[in-house]
Design a protein around this nucleic acid. Structure first.
Lengths: 189, 189
DNA sequence: GTGGGCATACCGACCGGTCGGTAGGGTGGT
DNA sequence: ACCACCCTACCGACCGGTCGGTATGCCCAC
């Protein structure tokens, strides 16, 4: 349970990292935006890249939980894929800043954390993959295109979303999510 | 026509920016990797971010040329989309480093160049969009999913490619390209 | 009175960019 | 044939400034 100060620091860091990038954002800027001091920041975080790690952890934890919950519902393959995509697109649209930081600055993580991270990411990837492969095996989906390529395509849009999605744009997140799900499911027919 | 020295500098910069990011790469590292001196670098480039701009320019110029050439062939809508995607995926796979830098560090460009750049990018996007809309209008493609969403999905995979594609991986670029094209075309049925 | 939660002053490292200078090949006047 | 002149390509020491991180101590709740 993060303290109010801790939360303000993370919020400011997300905003600034998304707008300017990790390296281009100084610790001074973060503490100014969060209205705290450097002492406070280094009281809660050991180093600047602890902030990055925390941002990633928060994001991936909630996304994994979402997917696990949906799979647990026991829907048909098609409905499972649809629900996973819709929930992923909507939650990503709600957290564009976090996602932008995640996509752009992943490589800045140290070796240890990078490894830990890839494992988590891989688990997510493979869980989704298994859903599609199951649908292909029982005939719900076409096997025309290998499942791993389908997963890459589906996750590709989502990760690129911060580049073009604007909360005040013409399409609300829900509609966008349905369109993406429709297209992916059409490709799996 | 760039001199040999200039080329060595750009090659080194691409490699290092892709591996570590723009800000995390010092000018010293670049000149060391390129086996030239700082004087040489600042003889050819006015500032560090001229390197970024040059990398982007090279990439987008060749991609635009590819697409224009394909459209000029006058193929059917389906074949045009297929050829565009295959050529884009293959050329991106050949230049993963450039693409990684492009995707990750675009926001680091100054205001003027950013504007110039968005215009070029938008042109590319809309040319592709027009191809798909034409296919939807003449009945070659389904109109189930709006064309702009299809473009976002297709370009999404390509831009994410540097994250997971490995030249020594199991699938050669050509096969990957065909799979992606197959899936997109299946979604457009 | 003592320890968690900060504030403030400060440090050394490093960074992008500059600048005075040089090496060497072309060129035109004589 | 020669040399004065210049220009491009390049060298590398150096600078002002910023950065991430630390050392030290106050202060208030318990």
């Amino acid at each position: 349970m993060p303290s109010a100060t801790e939360q303000k620091i993370i919020d400011a860091a997300v905003r600034l990292f998304a707008a300017q990038g990790y390296d281009a954002t100084s610790v001074q800027e973060i503490v100014a935006a969060a209205e705290v001091t450097k002492g406070a920041l280094y009281h809660y975080f050991r180093a600047k890249d602890d902030l990055l790690f925390e941002i990633y952890r928060l994001l991936i934890t909630s996304q994994s939980a979402d997917m696990d919950r949906i799979i647990g519902l026991g829907l048909s393959s098609a409905d499972t894929v649809r629900e996973i995509l819709v929930s992923l697109v909507v939650s990503t649209a709600e957290r564009v800043d976090e996602t932008a930081v995640f996509v752009r600055e992943l490589h800045r993580l140290g070796e240890d954390r990078m490894t830990e991270f890839r494992a988590e990411r891989r688990r997510y990837h493979e869980t989704f993959l298994a859903v599609i492969e199951k649908g292909q095996a029982d005939g719900s989906f076409s096997s025309g295109v290998p499942a791993d390529t389908v997963v890459r395509i589906a996750l590709g849009v989502v990760n690129q979303l911060p580049i073009w999605y604007r909360p005040d744009g013409p399409k609300p997140p829900g509609l966008l999510a349905e369109e993406i799900a429709d297209f992916v499911l059409a490709g799996l027919r």
